[in-house]
Design a protein around this nucleic acid. Structure first.
Lengths: 237, 237
DNA sequence: TGCACAACAATCGTATGCAATCTTTTTTGG
DNA sequence: CCAAAAAAGATTGCATACGATTGTTGTGCA
């Protein structure tokens, strides 16, 4: 469980706030499933791994707790979130509510430079789809999320940006937990279609495509409360 | 500037997390404009007022910083947020994006008990409108925000609830800063109309009414960048 | 053998101390 | 008298220390 692989890649970029750097590192690790849901993140351990005191480790965990990526229990510690099916539904309900509007807003502000950035992002996604193996799958989930964040950044609203960052991160957790098949096999083509709608500035189409896209992602989840997981959860942990 | 008036009203309800209690207290104070935008909130001072150490005061301020209610500057301290016109626009753009959908969702889940709660809330609002004076105006803004939070709670999505709590709090700040007239003079009747739409479960109407309502609130703001504030900001601070 | 209880270990919650940084005031040179 | 440098003061950033709480292990008794 070596979390602190790329400490310094983040540390030198953030000479301002170390807690934030640790937060970003942990978030990436959680979203990439290098840290499994339910994993305990004790303040002391995190502090040791990142070579800081418990104070700053605690601050980082508190941030992640706000984002819903870790759950903290009083006097017990912090654990990587293990979203319930109900939570998963709420995450996607929120995205259905917000993202079509973001697509609409993005349509009105998109520039040629943005389109170029989208093309690059789509290429990146495509690379991971042809590859196989768990590593590629993780990168695929991450790249898919990055697409949505890129779209949000085009909309140019810092508040929505933060909301979407949280939703995308939590979605990645949910997909990793409940995902059935290769999500983005169809997702990639849908992303391409959305970029097409953006390019022609057809906000109605972009909005509709986005809604369907989210529906497809959620449809790929298996959110039934199975006897298996409940039992496994009760015994295995 | 006596913040700690009602410490214990919050403290005994929250023997679990003192930082959260302080956060709630400060948030109320900010939203009610008992703490003016720009006011410095030093860790030491907050800690002394609430009779806790700087550690927990710091945690409370960090939470408020996440919510966008205070702005923190490194090695300088925390200040009550002073949202710029651009920020104000983003707050309301976000609400326009989210709240119509919340109204729709609420329509599908509203119960008779909810309707009764709405009636009580509307009465509460009405009480403050007939009163005059700054205290009543504050209570009016707060009650108006509470209506939107009540509606969100009916929608039954914890994530959206948190988003809306942030947006409503920031809106209150914005209204207090840039509001022109009595916002809720018309706002109250619009709230009443929305409850009516809920009661008849007309989700399309509820959604439209909500959108217009937000537009009206924003239309009452004066978001022009006046020479005054910019100059005052540059010199006075 | 099985259960209750007590001691132990691990971890968190919080207070406090020190160094770094920023702001303000004082001093000094022109 | 003014400007610039230097020192003082205030406040944050961070680490560490100590008491409190929780979960676990071991022991005695039925």
């Amino acid at each position: 469980m070596n979390i602190a692989d790329q400490i310094y890649s983040a540390a030198d970029s953030a000479n301002q706030d170390r807690a934030q750097a640790i937060r970003d590192n942990l978030r990436d690790a959680i979203v990439d499933r290098r840290l499994a849901p339910g994993t305990k993140l004790s303040e002391g351990e995190v502090g040791t791994l990142f070579d800081v005191s418990r104070t700053v480790a605690r601050a980082a965990l508190q941030m992640l707790s706000f984002e819903g990526l870790v759950r903290t229990e009083r006097n017990r510690g912090a654990f990587v979130a293990n979203p319930s099916p109900e939570e998963a539904r709420q995450v996607f309900a929120s995205r259905r509510l917000i993202e079509p509007g973001i697509a609409t807003a993005a349509c009105e502000r998109v520039t040629a430079a943005d389109i170029a950035a989208f093309r690059a992002q789509l290429d990146e996604e495509g690379r991971f789809i042809v590859e196989r193996g768990p590593t590629a799958r993780r990168s695929e989930i991450k790249a898919s999320g990055d697409f949505h964040l890129l779209l949000t950044s085009v909309a140019g609203n810092a508040i929505l940006q933060r909301f979407m960052e949280e939703l995308v991160a939590r979605s990645s957790l949910v997909i990793a937990l409940y995902g059935r098949s290769g999500v983005s096999a169809c997702g990639h083509s849908e992303h391409t279609d959305i970029v097409g709608a953006l390019e022609s500035r057809d906000s109605g189409l972009a909005s509709r495509l986005m809604l369907h896209h989210i529906d497809h992602i959620e449809a790929d989840l298996d959110l039934r409360v199975r006897a298996g997981p409940a039992l496994r959860e009760a015994l295995n942990f």
